[in-house]
Amino acid sequence: MKAIRPLCVAALGFFACVPAALSQIPRDPTPVVSKTSPADIANGKILYEATCSRCHGLDAGGSDGPSLQGAPERLGDEAMGGIIRGGIPGTGMNGFGSLSADETGQVIGYLRTLGHTADAEIAKGDPAKGKTAYESSGCAGCHIISGEGGGAGPELTRVGAMRGPSYLRTTLLTPGAILPKEGGAMERGRFTQFLFVHVVTKDGRSVNGTRVYEDSFTIELKDAAGRFHSFKKLELQKLEKLPGKSVMPSFKDTLSATQLDDLVAYLSSLKGAQ
């Protein structure tokens, strides 16, 4: 139970806060929708820097307040709009009810441009053939797409919205080479995600896994089979953080160049519904 505790806390925090935030009544009742034209994003940047950056950092990567990178993708426009204009009771997040629905949409539109591992590469393969490669390579054993697959690795339903083709290609060839830094909406700074950790307990038990949670006294790992392991740091004889390594195998020698292009194209096409 202990290993999944932080996830429960994060989920409870989210559900406890959002309805309360939405119950605050903004001055402009129009529903908030992301506004993403270049002019909207430019104004969103000005509004963000004047209103939000003091707590969330100029790049929304977190400061006194949590990182907001990826928050619109996780929460959606309506919840983001509710939080921006209504605040989150019980936290330092004040409501900014003076922002109009359009202005709030511009701020969210600007936030959507930040923190992605988007890159110059445009996926050139065939997504349909990539889906076949995905299925034949055993990816679904560890990843869930639209409710199907195994949960040992991260869910990929919306991976195309969060990661660029070049990042996906690198990860397939050398997993762990680039680790994203993200913070969930209720979390604080940007911790390295999917960090590979090797621990040895004082009684000689050795465990490798992906870091799920860490604080000053405990660390929780998820192994290649998706099992959670909970450790007290003082009870470990070894704790090694190994960026560059991963529980995910490389597909360098199992996929042809064409299959790789197709798989990248398929993953890039996964933009998922909320």
């Binding site: 004047a50 209103t51 950056s53 003091r54 100029l58 977190g62 911790f191 390295t192």
Partner: peptide
Amino acid sequence: KFPIGAGGERALSGDDA
């Protein structure tokens, strides 16, 4: 009024801090 465009920070956080 908060001085718009006066500057600010991009913080090193997470594992860098």
